[in-house]
Every structure is written in C-alpha cells, then in structure tokens.
Write a protein that binds this DNA or RNA. Structure first.
Length: 586
RNA sequence: GCGCCCGUAGCUCAGCUGGAUAGAGCGUUGGCCUCCGGAGCCAAAGGUCGUGAGUUCGAAUCUCGCCGGGCGCGCCA
C-alpha cells in the first residue's frame, strides 16, 4: 500500500512537471508515512512542503495540485490537504480486510520478503575468548546478533552467522597454564596460584579431567616450575611478566606435545561449553572461525604484505607499524612486535580482509561497547587495503546491568564470581532473557530487572505478549468445548462485520507487521519489533476485554475468529524472530 | 586531554531518513470479575525533550559550544 501510494504521488509529480507547474529538475524522493493521528487519515505525505521553495509556490497550493493529478484507486476513499500542506489519504473501510486472509494463507511466512534479494550478509557476534564461560554481557551480544541475523534472513538476505574463535592468543596460554597449575595441585603439590591466572571453578573442572584421565603423566615437581621466576604482583613484581614466565616454564617442562595437549583440552572444553550454552539459548552458528587458522594459512602475513605494498607500513623502535592515522585513526598501530610476533590487530586485519574476500556484500560485527576505540583502526586497515570500509558495519552493544530487589547485582570477573549467561537463563528462562536483552536499542545501556523478568504478570512484557498469543489458543479451546465449529471461509467472507475501533486497530497492526520487520531488519534494530509486539498485544487485550468473540451470530463469530487468528500469527511470527517461544497455553 | 555512546514524565524507555497537539510501561490516584484465562482492562494526574545558539516553512530529531553520566584511549586479546 505504502509503495502504491508513493508511486501514485510520483506519477502526479511527473504530470505536474510536464505541464510546467513544477520545475523539470530532479525532485526529492516521495515519502509516504503512516499517519499517527487517525484524524489525519491512514497515510500521509509531506512532499509538498519540501517542494514549496523549489517551485516558488505555497505548500498547500502544490498539495492541491498533486491531489488534482492523483489517479483513482479503489482502496483510497478520500484524499485531503491539511495543515501546512500535508496530503492525507483515507482508506476505504474494507481496504484493510484482505490482510486477514493474506496472513492466514501465508502463516509462518507472513512478514517475510525478498527485499534482500539473496545478497550475502555476514553477522559475526559474541566471539568471546574461550577462556571461560559466557557471562551476562556476552548474552546481550548473543541475543542481539541472533535477532539481527534472523531479521535479515526474514527479509531475504543470505545470512552467514559466525563466531570468531580467539584460539591463538596469549590469553589462551594463560588458560593452559592455569589448568596445568590446578592439575599440579590435584597431584598433591602446593601451588601459589599466579595473580593473573584464571581462577574460576571451571579451571578446576578441566584440571580434574586431565588428572582423572591421565594420572600424573603431566606431573612435574612444583619446585621446578617456580624456580628462578621473577616476582609475582603480591611480591612486588609485575603480574603480566610473571604469568608469561610461568607459561614459558610450562612449555619448557612439558615439551611441545604435552603443553599442546593441555592447551587444547582447555580450549576445546570451554568452546564446547560455549557452544552448548548458546545452542540452549537458541543461538546457532554457520561457522566457528579459528583465529589460528588465519596464521596457519599465511593470511596474516599476506595482509601485512598487502599493507607493505600499499606503502602503509614503517619500522620504528624495532617494531612494524601501520600508518592508520592516514585513514583517520588517532594514532598508528603496531602489527609486528619488537620480538617478531604479530599483534592481535594484525590477525584482525587478516580476518576482516578474509571476510571481504569471501564475497559478503555486507559484514556486520557485533562488539561490546568497550571495544569502540577499535573501530577506526579496523576501518582504516580495510581502506588501506583498497576495500570499501562501508561494507563493514560495526554495531556496539552497551553493557547490561542486572538488578535484583531494586539493587544492582555486583559482578566481579577478577574473583571468578561473575554471573554467567547459563545462570541467568536458569533464573529467568530463555524467553525472558532473549526478550529483555533486545528490548532496548543496542547502544542504550540496559537495566535488566531480574524480578520483572521472572514475574508472571502484565508488568512483564514477555508474558504480556505471550499471554496474548496463548489467549487466542484458549479462545479456540473454548470454542470446541462449547461444541462450536469455526468456518474459515464464512469468516473471511464476513470480515466486513469488523467495524469496532478495536478491530480496526488490530487490522492496522497486522498490516503493519511486514513494514516493522523490514524496518527493524534494515536498521539492525530488533527493539522496533519488540515495541510493535507490545502494541499489538495491548490492542488485543483491549479487544478481548471489551468484546466477546464467541457470539451467537455465526458470521460475526467467524469473522472475529479470523481476525484473532491473524493476530496470533503475527505475534507468533514476531516472537520467533526474537528467539522467544509462542506458547498455546501458559 | 582526545574519541565514542547516552541525557525525553517520579522511574525504565519509544519517538522511523526533520513534519501536524511529544508517546508507552511501571509507579501514584480512582474504577472494572453472573460473560471466551483478572497472567487482563479503563480513567486521571504527570514533560521548559540537559542547556545555549545556528540551519529552515518547520527541530526531541540535523550542526556547533557548554553541562552531566557511561566507556575507551598498550609492542593485551
């Protein structure tokens, strides 16, 4: 409808250009929007206001001229010029009715489209270091990334969901060392645990596996481990330098093969845990992309060579620098350290180069807001490589703060006592977690009220929407209990009986759904869908309390049931796009 | 100091590429169950859109300054 009206106005403008009322130069695009106020009709167009100066005429005058040139459309009952020069379209009373049949025919496909025309989009999200379980911060990235991916898929993009596994860095070595030290403790050694090592319970679990399955095969007397190391932080030393020394010593004492085994055990155990966690959260990936594989394939070196060929590298202080300031970054960045090792940034350049080489039309990165300083340098690298940085869209997700009993829930990663995503799911359930995480726009800080998420009342937006869905199912059960039958064809034929204001509101809501999905997908803003679902649920609950559906009059009854089923379909389709279940009963 | 995000009702937040009288939920106050699930609904009160300028027919929305809050500024990942 929207596009039809747009075309009608465009045609009118073209006619006005031909007869000289409007200048022949290119005109601004015609926007037709849903009117917010019912008195302004169903759709409104403000193009005349924008054309006023261009044409040297008063807006209302132009609007009148446009209206005079509009072709007829049986769905439009009235067009009027109002206010400063708005063109308001009033739809014929039954113009909306066909949407009910369309929804019921399309079912789960209602709201989907081929807008994306199969263009390939990659969404990379979560990508947390596999050094421990996911926490509630990662949960928001997971829920957001999954919803964005599902939305894009719904409007016809070929979506590739990817998790970038940082399996090569120093953090992984710290994990390996942590596991090994805990293992030594299980072997009966007294270990002073490094300040900078991972001390969560899961480290004990992995060490336990190692000890249970391999006995003392990895046992080394603890005196050998710590002999001659620099002081740790509590002893007045540097914790970073200390942990690096512990790692080096572990490598030396275990040898390559055994060290590698401990390393892999830690990595794989945690990765498996993350994978399960996300799967249970309804988040699945097409690919888990290994950082290590980049350097093994020579991609990192190749990226560096390409930057060198482009003349964007230079040496200073023994390190190799990328001139990112030439592309808007605030300072240049090291890609190869003085000790010859490539930096994480070098891997990331290679990774993003690789993403674009894989042929994605568009690449979306979902990052925690604390990484925002990283955006300019990655874009700078793409630009230096001759790629279009516009193809990369980095979405920053702000942190979530948990509240319980009105109090902020304290989290401390240092002590290992953080709230994990798994704990959150267990406490509030998957549906509430998925819904709450995407309720706010991503760049907005999120206050996550645990008590509200758990409550079973209309205060809780998840239950509110789900309840509307379940209520429809309940009505159908009631229909059967009363020994009545639904006649779908009779319902569709009698849709003209739906004249109550609540019915009109619901018809509009149902018709708007595809527009909302499209808008939420293109803007990468699932919260738009959340707000829409709340509105429709509200309209439904109002309808429910003011009117009986199961009335004596069979035509009216079937018409109302058809409408209500269409509403249920929309709510269900929307909830599923957000990863939330749409229950038949609660 | 520099950079990014945020500042809208008592609280938590919407407000789509600038558009007609700024919206919702919670909370407050007052109402609604012989009837499909009250896990619901209705009504009222409540706002100088942080602030000062600018752009224009029109600014919560765009630009700049200032104030306030969050985050980030490593040869860590």
């Amino acid at each position: 409808m929207k596009h039809d009206l747009q075309r009608m106005v465009e045609a009118a403008l073209a006619a006005l250009q031909r007869d000289g009322t409007l200048p022949a130069e290119p005109l601004p695009p015609v926007q037709v929007e849903r009117a917010r106020d019912p008195r302004h009709g169903d759709w409104a167009c403000s193009v005349a206001l924008g054309l006023a100066r261009l044409a040297g005429r008063r807006p209302r005058e132009i609007a009148e001229a446009i209206v005079g040139r509009l072709g007829p459309d049986p769905r439009v009952s009235r067009v009027e010029v109002a206010g400063a020069g708005f063109i308001n379209f009033f739809l014929a009373p039954d113009a909306l009715l066909h949407v009910v049949g369309a929804v019921l025919a399309a079912g789960p496909a209602y709201g989907r489209s081929d807008l994306g025309r199969g263009r390939r989009v990659q969404v990379e999200f979560v990508s947390a270091n596999p050094t421990g379980p996911l926490h509630v911060g990662h949960g928001r990235g997971a829920a957001y990334g999954a919803a964005v991916a599902d939305l894009l898929e719904a409007v016809g993009f070929a979506v590739h969901r990817e998790y970038y596994v940082n399996d090569a860095g120093r953090q992984m070595d710290i994990l390996a060392a942590s596991v090994w030290l805990r293992y030594l403790e299980l072997c009966g050694e007294a270990v002073v645990f490094p300040a900078n090592a991972y001390r969560g319970d899961y480290v004990w679990d992995i060490a336990g596996t190692l000890h249970r399955e391999h006995g003392d095969a990895y046992h080394v007397p603890v005196a050998h481990v710590f002999d001659g190391l620099p002081p740790d932080e509590p002893a007045g030393g540097d914790k970073e330098r200390y942990i690096d020394a512990v790692i080096a010593r572990a490598r030396e004492l275990l040898g390559d093969n055994r060290y590698r085994f401990v390393f892999e055990l830690g990595l794989n155990t945690i990765l498996e845990d993350i994978r399960d966690d996300l799967r249970e959260f309804g988040v699945v990936y097409d690919e888990w992309y290994s950082e290590r594989s980049l350097s093994e394939r020579g991609a990192v070196q190749r990226a560096i060579e390409r930057l060198r060929d482009a003349g964007q590298l230079y040496e200073r202080d023994g390190a190799l620098w990328f001139r990112s300031t030439a592309f808007g970054d605030e300072k240049d960045r090291v890609v190869v350290r003085e000790n010859g090792q490539t930096t994480y940034f070098a891997s990331d350049i290679a990774y993003h180069m690789d993403k674009l080489e894989r042929g994605f039309d568009r690449v979306i990165d979902v990052w925690g807001a604390d990484h925002h300083g990283y955006v300019p340098r990655v874009k700078a690298a793409l630009q230096a490589l001759g790629d279009d940085p516009e193809r990369l869209d980095v979405r920053l997700v702000q942190f979530a703060t948990l509240y319980r009993g009105g109090e902020k829930v304290q989290m401390s990663t240092r002590s290992g006592e953080f709230v994990t995503l798994r704990q959150l799911r267990k406490e509030v359930g998957r549906d509430a977690a998925r819904f709450f995480y995407v309720m706010r726009k991503s760049e907005q800080h999120l206050d996550f009220d645990l008590d509200l998420a758990k409550s079973r009342s209309s205060d809780n937006p998840v239950y509110y929407v789900q309840y509307a869905h379940a209520r429809v199912a309940s009505v159908l059960r009631q229909l059967a209990e009363r020994g009545l039958e639904r006649h779908p064809e009779r319902g569709l034929a009698a849709l003209g009986r739906l004249t109550e204001s609540q019915e009109q509101a619901l018809l509009t809501g149902v018709a708007r759904y595809p527009e909302v999905v499209e808008s939420a997908a293109l803007a990468h803003e699932p919260h738009q869908l959340v707000h829409f679902l709340r509105e429709v649920a509200n309209d439904f609950h109002v309808y429910y309390t003011t009117h009986q559906f199961l009335v004596e009059d069979g035509d009216l009854r079937d018409a109302r049931l058809a409408l209500v089923l269409a509403v249920q379909q929309v709510l269900g389709n929307g909830l599923r796009l957000l990863g939330v279940s749409a229950p038949e009963a609660m």
